[in-house]
Design a protein around this nucleic acid. Structure first.
Lengths: 344, 344
DNA sequence: GGTGTCGGTCGAAGCGCTTCGATCCGGAAT
DNA sequence: ATTCCGGATCGAAGCGCTTCGACCGACACC
């Protein structure tokens, strides 16, 4: 591998001029710059990562911690990892994976050894041991998700509460007075933070709009087809004319199956909104309206915050909630006489 | 962060002695070693990663390239990434993720900048552009999977051919003369390497044992419930008394559904072996015999090879095929009169 | 009693880069 | 003219570690 001194010699300048030309930290004459760039190209020069870290004290690496619990939804998780990696590369950063036990243990290690410039935290649990760890280290840390105790942390997430309110509003505006919420699997309500918050926010708004909202989960440890169908049926039996789904894709198809089995149509007989889905609801057998949880948005913002914090911008801690966006796919209509029942 | 000279001072020795005590590359007196370890502990010393890379020319980082095509089975993929990361940590290595476009572009980058000691290649396609890249760089590269053109490469994988032969043998030994193979989704037979090889090997062995083997895929771009059920039905209609399944978990449940719908039982009426499954076939509604594809084994071996190649051991290129292991869960029995039909 | 050999230790030379201060030069301001 | 400023460049000092060669004393061997 060519080294910086070879580039300097080839371009007829000093080492430091090459460095400045490449970093842009001091002005370099246009002609000189061209000669340097030419030399770099011809020699295939790449600055040595180790030397850079040592001299610069910027590593161009972010750690990404992901515990990968057994109940993690793999496809969703993958899209978050992917979004983070892509966003990082846009800022010339690489991602170092900390999984399994290392998700926690590795944080201290990479921080102390100066291997990474910042740490991104994925798969955040309500009571997450990484919260304490992040407070104990000097390396900037950004949470993608919000733990219960987020005092002094930088956190990024979809504004689930606003999303829930928006969804309820849309249904209320369309005239629905009884709606059902099909939520995440049971465990999510203990091990994760936003499912309960979304539910609570939906209930609050429903109350404000004079609507009755019933809630069911979509399974035990993961979305179960049978459980979700049953839940759907129960909600419809209770008179729900609209469904708000906060669950994985298979829960959607299970709900569709029950609706179809009853000879009902979407949206004529049953309105549906999917909330905080991170997959594409347009490719479901029935495209549905959604207030999506966009990995690119969350992870992009998280990376941006990390980059900024490395560049000196001491960012004040706090929640960075991404405002919900409504994607209309025509799965909402006014309640039909067919499903509507008098309020008891 | 404490630096090595502070440790040296605290222990009353020179910097180099500290270094040798920690690396073990030269003998250090037991008493001296203890004093150094004490100092390290008390100061919370961690060698600086950048300095280490620069001076040592060992980075303690492996790159893991994973293109993440849309048809990648997320859960399977995740278990490979996890297995790799865990294995790497056992050897004191971290994993740097190269995804998406960077899966290819990043290889040259991290190699040239000396960021990583070796590269591990995941999600290998038959015609994989990373093959050419790996030949163009000096950084040791280990493929987890076998591309068509593997001349001069180091590749690790399950011995699919032996696995197929083993599976056919078991069924033949049990007395089956007509068996069906439910394979991967269609695309896998174009975009991946082993599905066709497994199929061919199964057919060859079936021929040798005088058995008739019919083949069906389990879907178009992913396992489809309907398609798999249909395939299962067709195979049974053709007189198959045993099924060899090489597909994702949902394909198994789909096959079970069809079998159950026909009032048949496993293994009394239909014998089943799952080949090269990377999930736990014991947790399926019906536990089935399997010749598993064990991520820990493949990735562990790959990491080991990478570590060895870094430590000077110039490893000669070649395929490292992991011998198949048979896990008995009692899903095989002799063919029953109920399903058996005379050979036409 | 020389002369190896080996365990144990030290000093110093880098590893390849970034960055600070110094220098030099041409043009604007006075 | 003199001064001053900012663009453009250079030399050199590290960044924190690894590793080489050298040294010293202890012990064994003949």
């Amino acid at each position: 591998m060519a080294k910086i001194d070879e580039v300097a010699k080839a371009a007829g300048v000093s080492i430091s001029t090459v460095s400045y030309a490449l970093s842009g930290k001091r002005p370099v004459a246009p002609d000189t710059r061209r000669r340097i760039e030419k030399a770099v190209r011809e020699l295939g020069y790449r600055p040595n990562a180790g030397a850079r870290m040592l001299a610069g004290s910027r590593t161009q690496i972010f750690a990404l911690t992901e515990p990968l619990r057994k109940d993690t939804h793999a496809p969703t998780h993958m899209s978050f990892v992917l979004a983070t990696a892509v966003a990082a590369r846009r800022h010339d950063y690489d991602i170092l994976l900390l999984t399994d036990e290392e998700a926690s243990a590795g944080m201290g290690r990479v921080a102390a050894s100066g291997l990474v410039d910042a740490i991104l935290v994925l798969d955040v649990a309500p009571e997450d041991e990484r919260v304490a760890l992040s407070r104990a280290i000097a390396t900037p840390t950004v949470f993608i998700g919000v733990p219960n105790d987020h005092e002094g942390l930088v956190c990024v997430d979809l504004d689930f509460e606003a999303a829930a309110a928006l969804a309820v509003d849309r249904l209320a505006d369309a005239g629905h007075v009884r709606i059902g919420l099909i939520g995440q699997p049971d465990v999510a309500y203990e091990k994760s933070n936003f499912p309960p918050r979304l539910r609570t926010a939906a209930e609050r708004r429903a109350g404000e709009r004079g609507i009755r909202l019933s809630w069911r989960t979509s399974g035990h440890t993961h979305s179960s087809r049978g459980r979700t169908r049953k839940a759907t049926g129960e909600l419809l039996d209770e008179g729900a004319t609209a469904l708000l789904i906060h669950a994985a894709d298979d829960a959607h198809t299970a709900a569709f199956a029950e609706i179809e089995a009853r000879g009902l149509r979407i949206p004529e007989d049953v309105s549906i909104i999917s909330v905080a889905a991170s997959f594409d609801t347009a490719t479901l057998s029935v495209p549905v309206d959604t207030i999506p949880l966009i990995p690119d948005a969350s992870c992009g913002l998280a990376v941006e915050l990390a980059v900024r914090s490395v560049s000196g911008d001491h960012l004040e801690p706090g929640l960075h909630l991404i405002p919900p966006t409504y994607v209309d796919r025509r799965s909402i209509a006014a309640p039909s006489a067919r499903t509507e029942t008098p309020i008891s």
